[in-house]
């Protein structure tokens, strides 16, 4: 595991920065262009969630190793209101704010691994990994 890179997410131009950094890391990892596009899109969805629903937060991007392969692990953390019913939030089309509600479920479909923890009143943390 190499040292992670932390990007604050405070405004919508930060989402662009997350996209650009994830793209750079994905290329460095040797991901194919389709896989690059998938992980960058997933990152875009989650970064926007952090901004819009979480009221801002940060992303940690890191290259990880495991089972003889390398991957990209992205963690998104906010100290927003949290999600009451995660099962409900993962259903396509569900949305407590703007957007089509494909953010969480879409990001999950675009990743190899997906993990979400949320405490009402404390915040939400989503971690996704894409293996090469």
């Amino acid at each position: 595991m190499t040292g992670g890179e932390t990007i604050p997410i405070r405004e919508s131009s930060d989402v662009i920065r997350v996209r650009a950094e994830v793209r750079r890391l994905a290329i460095g990892l040797g991901l194919g262009v389709v896989d690059q596009t998938k992980i960058v899109t997933a990152a875009s969805e989650l970064a926007r969630n952090t901004l819009v629903y979480g009221g801002g937060g940060h992303a940690v991007l890191e290259v990880v190793e495991g089972k003889g392969r390398r991957g990209l692990r992205l963690s998104f953390e906010d100290h927003g209101p949290g999600i009451l019913d995660i099962g409900q939030a993962m259903i396509d089309g569900y949305s407590s704010g703007r957007g089509l509600g494909l953010g969480l479920s879409g990001a999950k479909r675009l990743s190899s691994e997906f993990e979400i923890t949320s405490v009402v009143g404390e915040g939400t943390r989503v971690v996704i990994t894409r293996w090469n």
């Binding site: 596009t37 998938k38 494909l102 879409g106 479909r109 675009l110």
Partner: peptide
């Protein structure tokens, strides 16, 4: 491909 995977 990604948009379709996303469900859009």
């Amino acid at each position: 491909i990604t948009l379709v995977e996303l469900g859009l």
